[in-house]
Design a protein around this nucleic acid. Sequence first.
DNA 1: CCGATAAGTAGG
DNA 2: CTACTTATCGGA
Length: 762
Amino acid sequence: MKQKIAKVAVPGPFLFPLDYLLPEVCVDAQAGMRVWVPFRNKKIVGLLMDVGEQSDYDDSKTKSVLEVIDDEAILTADSLKLLQWASHYYHEPIGEVVQAALPKRLRAGEAAQIEGVTYWQLSELGQQKSLDDIAKNALRQRELFSALQVHGKLNENQLNHRLQNWRAAAKTLAQKNWLESYPGPCLLESDYAAKPEHTLNEQQQAAVDAVVQSQIDNPSKQAGNMALVAQNYAPRFSAFLLQGITGSGKTEVYLGMIDAMVKLGKQVLVLVPEIGLTPQMIQRFEAYLQTRVAALHSGLNESERHCAWHMVRTNQVKVLLGTRSAVFAPFADLGLCIIDEEHDLSYKQQDGFRYSARDLMIQRARQQNIPVVLGSATPSLESLYNAKMQRYQHLYLTQRAAQGAKLPQLKLLDIRGESIQEGVSQSLKLTMQKHLAAGNQVLLFLNRRGFSPVLMCHECGWQASCPSCDANMTYHQTDALNDLGYLQCHHCDEQIVKPSLCPSCQSEEFVKVGQGTERLQETIESWFSDKRVLRIDRDTTRLKGSISELTEQAKSGQADILIGTQMLAKGHDFPNVTLVGLVDIDQGLFSADYRAAERMAQLVLQVAGRAGRGAKAGEVLIQTHHPDHPLLTSLVQHGYDRFAVKALAEREQACLPPYQYQVLFRAEAHNPDDAMHFLYSLKAGLENTAQQLDRGDDVEFWGPVSAPMLKRQGRFRFQLMLQATNRGALHRMLNVMQPHILKSPLARKVRWSIDVDPQEMY
DNA sequence: CCGATAAGTAGG
DNA sequence: CTACTTATCGGA
């Protein structure tokens, strides 16, 4: 009998799995298991993608699989299919795609099984003791003891997150018999909070019903009757765009549909943006659903990640809340996908394997015949276009869920010719006074951290610029009194102390040009000296846990004025904020990036949504030098939908996405000529390919041109854009060209990448 | 002529 | 990407 062929994904520049012989002893091997294979003269872990009858690489040189690692597949057939599709669609080597999908431990060939995690709790003896029984100087022991008093039991992972050096303390206390440990499940074991009483309003219920009914035959029957739903359950692909204004209770709608799916015994995958996943969110989901919810995000350590993966694969947990890479998780029985804040840029990986988790999620739903829900207050233009083309069913939530909460009034503040102090107009200042006097909180939004974006010599006009990037260095102040600070490049993170003399003319006098959040804070504190000002940006939240600490302070009213960058805009709920001031949004209006206006609009509404979330009405003031800008005025006067219609019309006129498909080649090198020549030869090759294919598909080329920021981190950067009305035409061309690219001698000197559906051009 | 280094290339 | 092969250079 002829030996079977194992198609194995291995790390390296291979667009397809490599062929290995499958020895007799490995007949049980299935797709989705890991294998040890010889590669060069060492042994590496590969993922078995398929078992075939014959090899295209028919050669005596074919090596054999050494050993099968797993006794059951660690990836489901569905996940494998998605990985393969992603590799084709993004023209990414299959090994890189697998790497993005698997937790590190599994990539290293470690066992996929989870041994029990150790839990700690106070023993009977320990419960009789109190904190005073522990020596004052035994700090770690005291911390551990009180943590266990509060939480009852905690597992190793939880303790690692909460405390440092707790193991030695645990050992000491265990010797005294105050503590005991036992093995338990890897997912944290604790009780859920009580299920909140919650009734959905009419719109919310309609949205839940639309999704549930799409999955049953006989949709005329009542969707709320789970017995009937279960009887008629007939899963199929369908996509929904859930557009709900901020505060309309999208999460309750998600929970409603998740609940229905979980009652059917199905699993649900919920994607959230990077910063959106908080422990509170998980607790809220668990309380509402009364079932375990696993999380998968960057804050987890390897064993927690491994655990979530394992629980989902073995169907021990029904709901997974995760960020980008969770889209690859191997569900045993997936029934629904949800993408929260679908317009959020963090769904697109911006380096290496440049995939969009949103787009892959939709593809996954399509492949698995299940529904997918995209939620946002400000949907991406792509998604709105898809809804318009009837590819998505458009669901709306137009009312704020909280009793009496109303949408804030947006107002443009024309600051042309107005007297401006440190970037803040007189009218904004006066309105702030009014709101503060009424005992309310004010939020000022400025999307630029640091003190000032430019430091300039007063004598000769010299500006502090980054030696490695085409950018000014931002001035950060550490000591206002003595005028001390440092310069930092926000593109490569290089830091230097502020020079005492101008390097060009030795003058001692510098001017700080422009506003950052630090400077705004200084100004506001001098104006409102009796008010407490809290700044929330990447610099004040660098330490772990400080984001929640600061936002808690803000929510509990320990601050009157909040100043922040976009990290303040997302998801946080400040019930006492009644005035939101957007200090400077003008950069968003005239950018080289055609998506800048869309992003500006999404950010404006997101920030504006922070106002008036409680019972009090909110007010939003937007300072601008361009009060007549057509997109801005339509946003402010008529809302996001009218803005989107206008912006889409502009995109159509200019032949831009979503009316056209794009692929961006990026190239960077220390020698600019290398990068440029690489793209020129690439373009010549592509044009040649296009002629050979000759299908009358026209693919347009833009460039090569230099990137908006030519030099970054010491490398010169260029790009070549490919654009077509037909996605297939682009992909056919790339398929033919890609093997040639790898052979080009310049490809090794140049750092290059393919970006399918690029989102940002920086 | 040898060894060090740079450039080139296949990997199943 | 990386280890291995081949080409190239300069010193003895």
